[in-house]
């Protein structure tokens, strides 16, 4: 197993539905979820929240040499996306032409298979993003 099954299971809500943490004290949004707000420290009040599935690409990189388990997907795009609530996350970008994957492009979330341990192993599903051509 690349990842312990209980860990994969614990991440289902977070990865299926972009549930991040919101700090009620300073208003910051974090993804993936955090236990402590780095700005407010002990004064922070973190709560789970469904984050918007839309955002904009801040930077991107095309991966030609992948980590184990992603060899058949190369070349694929990774991007740092800023969601509409300003949380930033790292994600694969799929279903998009190469010339569309660039900083400033609008993206929206899609539900995809992230990895599987083997043909007989458990499948981890979760979010990826795709470019919305002409999206606002």
């Amino acid at each position: 197993m690349r990842e312990a099954l209980p860990l994969m299971w614990r991440n289902i809500a977070e990865r299926y539905n972009l549930i991040g943490t919101h700090c009620a004290t300073c208003g910051s949004n974090y993804y993936p979820q955090r236990k402590v707000c780095p700005k407010c420290r002990r004064k922070g009040q973190l709560e789970g929240r469904v984050f918007p599935g839309k955002g904009v690409i801040l930077s991107s990189s095309q991966v030609f040499v992948s980590p184990k388990g992603f060899e058949h997907e190369t070349p694929y795009w990774l991007a740092v996306v800023e969601l509409d609530n300003h949380a930033k996350l790292l994600t694969q970008v799929v279903d998009s032409a190469d010339d569309q994957v660039k900083a400033g492009a609008r993206v929206e979330v899609v539900f995809r298979k992230i990895y599987e341990d083997s043909h007989e192993g458990a499948i981890a599903y979760g979010y990826k993003f795709k470019v919305v051509p002409g999206g606002k």
């Binding site: 058949h72 997907e73 799929v94 279903d95 899609v110 539900f111 298979k113 499948i123 599903y125």
Partner: peptide
């Protein structure tokens, strides 16, 4: 379907 799609991902996208 692409390599990261299966009947579950198609079902989720349609259901959403």
């Amino acid at each position: 379907a692409s390599i990261d799609e299966d009947s579950a991902t198609l079902a989720v996208e349609a259901s959403r």
